[in-house]
């Protein structure tokens, strides 16, 4: 067996600008996520509730139209558009949570565990590139699984409108989803990514994220519903997300609380997570 000629073949091409690293890192993370069977299953299963909701909205809208033409006493039905919020909050949150568990909670800890940091360090990847490369893919997946189908539902609702005034009033479901989507995605991705920077055991960090999410939900919602203490609902991340969603969609708040409190809690959570994340990355010498 001979020894190969391992001489260099000089690269004469041009290098892309540094902003291209954002795209490279995001695409790589999305590609890795899509390679996971569990992720694919979650994304596919996540399509079913919006389809069912879409059918329901269509049928309900038809029923409202029928009843409106009926000579008998008119039977009032709610605007089927309210199902848009029901879908994004009560149905899609489960899929979004699984995605945050799979894509966000282990994102940095896996790099620490495998030692992949050393390869990032040896390339012109800045802290911002790295941060965006970790948060954005998880956020995109949450948007795809939860927000995009809901947006289609909202478009369907507008499309079913019989009059221009009905269409105009229904656009609030589209606007609401567009406004709520980023909030939803940030709350479900920034905290778990920050958690993932605190250790190297991905499984443990996923467990911590699940515990934080569900225990606060049970505690906050349980105490608030069982007692006359609505403020305890603010302990729960999902409940705050629900209250903010109701606020954005113009729906009545389920708890009698000032509108800004759940928003402030979520802003504080995301802000604190971002602070922890930046602080942890600053401890990585190359980024400081």
């Amino acid at each position: 067996m001979g020894i190969r000629d391992l001489g260099y073949k000089r690269y004469d091409g041009k290098l892309l600008p540094h902003r291209s690293r954002y795209r490279v890192l995001i695409r790589r993370a999305l590609s890795l996520a899509w390679g996971s069977g569990l992720m694919k299953t979650t994304l596919i299963l996540g399509m079913f509730p919006p389809v069912i909701c879409g059918v329901y909205i269509f049928l309900k809208h038809q029923a409202i139209q029928y009843l409106a033409r009926s000579p008998q006493a008119p039977l009032q039905l709610d605007d089927p558009g309210s199902l848009v919020f029901t879908c994004i909050y009560w149905c899609q949150i489960w899929f979004a949570f699984v995605i945050s568990l799979l894509a966000a909670a282990p994102s940095i800890s896996e790099d620490v565990r495998t030692g992949a940091f050393q390869f990032y360090f040896a390339r012109p990847v800045s802290r911002n590139h790295y941060l965006v490369g970790k948060v954005a893919p998880a956020a995109i997946l949450v948007l795809i699984s939860a927000v995009a189908p809901t947006l289609l539902l909202a478009v369907l609702r507008v499309g079913l409108s019989q009059t221009s005034s009905e269409a105009w009033s229904s656009t609030r479901w589209i606007v609401g989803t567009l406004a709520y989507g980023p909030v939803y995605a940030l709350v479900l991705t920034v905290p778990p990514v920050a958690l993932s920077s605190l250790g190297r055991r991905s499984g443990s960090l996923q467990g911590v994220w699940a515990t934080v999410f569900f225990v606060t939900w049970l505690l906050g919602e349980g105490i608030a519903a069982g007692t006359d203490l609505p403020y305890t609902a603010l302990l729960s991340i999902p409940t705050c997300l629900r209250l903010v969603g109701q606020l954005i969609y113009g729906l009545p708040l389920v708890y009698d609380l000032p509108w800004y409190l759940p928003a402030a809690v979520l802003a504080g959570l995301v802000g604190l997570s971002a602070f922890v994340l930046l602080r942890r990355l600053n401890r990585v010498e190359v980024f400081s």
Binding site: G13, L15, R21, V24, L25, R28, Y120, R123, P124
Partner: peptide, 16 residues
């Protein structure tokens, strides 16, 4: 992937 992080375009990175 490492070639892309260095700044190469997708076809050039694959080729290299």
């Amino acid at each position: 992937f490492m070639a892309r992080l260095a700044g190469m375009s997708p076809p050039e990175a694959a080729e290299r």
